[in-house]
Each structure stands twice: as C-alpha cells, then as structure tokens.
Amino acid sequence: MKKIGITGQNGFVGRHLYNTLGLFPEDFQRITFQKDYFENENELDQFIKKCDVIVHLAAMNRHESEQLIYETNIGLAQKLVESLKRTGSKAHVMISSSTQEERDNLYGKSKKEGREALANWAQENDGKITGLIIPNVFGAFGKPFYNSFVSTFCYQLTHGETPTIATDGEVKLIYVQELVDIIINEINVGDSKPEFLIEPTATKKVSDVLSLLIDYKTKYFDCGEIPGTVDSFEHNLFNTYRSYIDYETHYPVKFRQHTDPRGAFVEVIRLGIGGQCSFSTTVPGITRGNHFHTRKIERFAVIKGKALIQLRKIDSDEILDFYLDGNEPGYVDMPIWYTHNIKNIGEEELYTIFWINEAFNSENADTYFLEVQI
C-alpha cells in the first residue's frame, strides 16, 4: 500500500484526486494535508516523512498581482524542497505545472521554475520526480472565475447570468477525471519523468464550448431533457455543467400531467441519449440506494406514494432532503460524486421509475456504496 499526500488537497484537482484514491483503499493510504503546514516547518516535515508519494498541487492560479502569483508559487515549491532535504525524504514527488510554461507571463514562469527546483532536488538527492505539464483542466466543482472558463460559463448559465467571450481562441482541454487517472497511473508506474507533457483529450474553440453549454441549459436546465452527447468530451462537459446547478432550489422538478376522464399521462424523461430504464416498488419504511457514481447520469421519478430522496457530496456533511409525492409526480437527478438514497416515508407502496444513461455492467459498475447518513 502506497502512502499518498497531496498538497492542495482541497483544491479543484486535489479534491478529485483525493476522492478517487479513496475508491481504492487496498492500494492507497491517503495522508491528510492542511495548507497551514507550509507555515510550520515541523508540521510540513512530519507530513513529508509519512509519504511514499507527494503530489504537489498547491498553487495560486489567479490574482490581480502577477508578481504575487509568481512569489507564492515559487515560495511553495522552495518550502517543499527544503522540507524534503531536512527529512532526507526518498518520496516520489509529482508537481503540477502548466502548458503556460512557455508563455511570457509570471504564472507560467513560476510553474516552470517550481518544477525545475524539484527536479534539481531529485537529481542531487537520488529522488524521484514527475513534472506534470498539464493543459487546461475542466470538470465538476471547479471554482468559477478562477479555475477555468468552463467553470465560469457553467456557473453563469445555471445562475441566471449571461456568459461573454473575451477571446475566441482554440483551447487544449483535459477533463479532471482523465487527469486524475493519468496521475494515479504515474503513481503506480513510479518512474522519474522530470518533464512529462500530458496531452489534451480535446481541442475546442471557446465559442463551441459555450454553444454546447447553452444547449444544455435550454434542453436540460429549462426543460428536463437529457441532451445527446456524441463523445466522451461532451459527456464530461454535461456532467460538469450539472455540477453547478443549485440542487436545493432546482429540485424536485414537478412533471407536467395531462389529465382527462380516463386518468393522467406524464412524460417521465425525454432523451437525446440511450440508457436503461427500470422501476421499483418499495414497501413503507424501506430505503434503497446509498451509493454514488463518478460518471453516470441518473434520474429518480416518483409516480406513486411518498418518498424522501437524500443526497450528500461524499466529502461533505451536508445532506439535501427532497420530498416527493406521487399525487404530484416529480423527479430528482443524481449529480456525480453525491451518494444518494430513496426512502418510502408513506403508508402505501412507493412506485419509482429509474433511468440511467448506461446499462449496468458488473465489471465496470461505477457504483460505490456509501451511506448518506453519517
């Protein structure tokens, strides 16, 4: 079992990496990092001593002062080098740099010099270094106006704002989970690669990305339709978009019922995508679920009985409660990385329709069991 520490553990990429490593407890032990360790040599040294692998992600990406960005990033790398030397560490150190290394700006310069400082440490102390040169990263839970233009557009389109394009150039992109998978593979391989250029998985014009996101807003956010996705980039972009919806105010969504003397008709889901549809009956007092997905898109539609649907982001204590009643049918969609369940809180059988975007495969289920209630 490898002991992995992540500086910037609570940042955008750090949180995804930390949570993904947690899916493999037999292979990895996560060593907790707190950002104030950089201000306390003893705490930083103790952290370093515990780690077989250190993934250095802590950095400042944006600030009004480019000089402050430069000084902060260089300072963090230097503090890490000094601690590695003090402790005589033989850890495999991985540092995130950026394809902006070659640009004429202080951010790119800070990332390149930080990577080179750790490469020099490895060379002089028989250490291992992987210098990850990373293209633009997008994905769920990124910080708008900070991590990526994708984060900013998603936030604006789910919060009643109108995105604008400053420069409509082509951008090389990688989805955060794809990046995390590469990092974990490099952890397992364990080779030194002082300059490891990570290839983008998509190259898109900013306007093309915005056009897709506007389509998701029109079809999904406004009308509840699951849009068609032609490739993994669009699937990942759609999951990214969904993560910015304010679930507490958006759900549950009530269905439109068409009634006549015969009874009622309700359209449960309109699809531009395939998948698997099923239904369940649940007796009073029983709870189903308590699991989460990292890629799947899923809808719970209550058509008879009373239900409590609960969601909790796996690294949060906050539980979201949604009450649904078959007398006024409605649905809740499950966001990625949220464990979820559904409980019959009524006195009659609960009827629920479930839709998920891919048929169940026991060998690649993307289903991880975790209680919603802590």
Rank of each mutant, 00 (worst) to 15 (best):
K2I: 11
I4E: 04
G5R: 00
F12N: 01
L17D: 05
L23Q: 09
E26H: 11
F28V: 07
F33C: 02
F33P: 05
E39R: 11
L44A: 07
F47C: 04
F47H: 02
K49W: 03
V53W: 01
I54Q: 00
V55I: 15
V55T: 08
A58C: 03
A59K: 07
N61Y: 12
H63N: 15
S65L: 05
Q67C: 01
Y70S: 05
T72G: 06
I74H: 06
V81N: 02
V81C: 08
A91L: 09
A91K: 08
V93M: 00
S96Y: 04
S98E: 12
T99E: 14
E101F: 13
N105L: 11
S110W: 06
K112M: 14
K112Q: 14
K112F: 13
G114L: 05
A117S: 15
N120F: 12
A122V: 09
G127S: 10
I129N: 00
I133T: 05
I134W: 01
V150Y: 01
S151K: 03
F153M: 13
H159M: 03
P163K: 03
D168I: 02
V171C: 09
V171D: 03
L173P: 01
V176W: 07
E178Q: 14
L179Q: 04
V180Q: 01
N185Q: 14
K193E: 11
T201S: 15
A202V: 07
T203K: 14
K204Y: 06
K205Y: 07
S207M: 04
V209I: 03
L212R: 08
D215L: 14
G224C: 09
I226K: 05
I226A: 06
P227A: 10
D231N: 15
F233E: 08
F238L: 14
Y241I: 07
I245F: 07
I245Y: 07
P261N: 15
R262N: 08
G272T: 07
I273F: 11
I273M: 09
I273W: 06
C277D: 05
S278V: 01
S278A: 09
H293A: 05
T294K: 14
I297A: 02
I297L: 09
E298G: 08
F300L: 09
I303S: 07
G305S: 10
L311V: 09
D315S: 13
S316E: 13
F322N: 01
E328M: 10
Y331E: 00
H340D: 01
N341V: 04
N357Q: 00
N357H: 05
F360Q: 06
E363G: 02
E363L: 10
E371L: 13
Q373C: 12
